[in-house]
Design a protein around this nucleic acid. Structure first.
Lengths: 202, 202
DNA sequence: GTTACCATACCTAGAAATAGGTATTTTTTA
DNA sequence: TAAAAAATACCTATTTCTAGGTATGGTAAC
């Protein structure tokens, strides 16, 4: 019988820690050996407790998740999984550079969380295929022309101005606009912008 | 004749360093003794070179500007000036807490940059009057009710929904909406959101 | 070589936002 | 307490966005 996997969780929001704990508590081969809402405490705990895996929030008071990973680069066997609200490309790339093993959104389901933990525990990194593919799919999800129109919407242009700038008819711009709304599942520009920022589309 | 002021510049974007260097290079009483695009290098350089003033980007790979200041709190005589793209209240307050001397937007003009440097070099802090006044004016610029409406617009609600949530008539919401646009100097929601983010209103 | 996707363009209709007013009441401030 | 600012509400008109269609030519994938 294998030893259980020791996990440390650090997140700004207690609710996230509680949620993750709940998802993990019935696994008899996973043990949560500590938690923290603060980056500096997390850093010290990880040094002291040497967990197999640390789930780290990207943004925490005191010390950010990426900071901790970088500080401990080469000095620990703990494998890091980054948690974040948003799927921002920049952060995924940063996490990869700093030798994190995976990157999860906070609304992750139990199955995906467990899969990720087991794979990471066995030494597998989950960036290349799963996540970067997701990133690409997110982007490819919008066609190039839709991206053009989206960019100009975010620049504050109205449809007529976009049509002029992209040498399209107003009808075409409105079609792209309509399709963007549909794909984003929103129904006005404000929500569209929120969606773009959350998904890290641009 | 006074000794020249030794300055260190750290910023993610080389273009900003180049721009600042350009603005400062003809001052014979100012010397740029080092630059960096990386937070960790900046930290080490500042410890080693002990500049009189360090201009630090808030967001840098490796170590953020505020992190550096916090780490060196009480351990150095270097005076820190924070650079940032946006005038976000949160960051200004953080910078104050960590004993930074001033806070500049990256599109600062030469005169303001030089004034700030000279004042900081002489030990003056430029938060209370200049910047916080600006901040307060920015916020007071919008009335409380306008802030309410603005928040809901950013949440993606349409005017009718805002009216319901705030117990106002649609007419009133539209009045606030109109006044927001006028104060921001914009003419659609996308531009309004950009303005809010740039000014750090929320 | 058929299917799927993309880019383009058009039509219609209704909802919502934008922009210009005016005006009354309440609250704040000088 | 008088003046100024804020919040409220209404009116009208125009513009813009949103949402549902349809349709065609091109390109890519399978």
């Amino acid at each position: 019988m294998k030893e259980s996997i020791n996990i440390y969780i650090a997140d700004d929001h207690q609710i996230v820690i509680d949620g993750l704990s709940l998802l993990l508590k019935n696994q008899n081969n996973i043990a949560i050996i500590g938690t923290s809402n603060d980056g500096v405490k997390a850093y010290n705990d990880i040094v002291a407790l040497k967990p197999d895996i640390a789930l780290l929030d990207l943004r925490m008071p005191g010390k950010e998740g990426l900071e901790i990973i970088k500080s401990l680069l080469g000095k620990t066997n703990t494998k890091f999984i980054i948690l974040s609200m948003h799927q921002e490309k920049r952060y995924v790339l940063d996490a990869m550079n700093y030798n994190a093993y995976a990157y999860l959104l906070k609304n992750v389901g139990q199955q995906e969380l467990l899969n990720t933990i087991y794979k990471v525990a066995s030494g597998e990194k989950l960036f290349n295929q799963d996540l970067l593919n997701n990133q690409k799919e997110e982007k490819a999800f919008l066609s190039p022309r839709e991206m053009d129109v989206l960019r100009e919407i975010m620049n504050g242009l109205k449809s007529a101005e976009i049509a002029e700038r992209l040498n399209l008819s107003l009808f075409t711009v409105n079609t792209h606009r309509k399709n963007l709304m549909k794909k984003a599942g929103v129904n006005n520009v404000s929500q569209l912008i929120t969606w773009v920022n959350e998904k890290g589309i641009m």
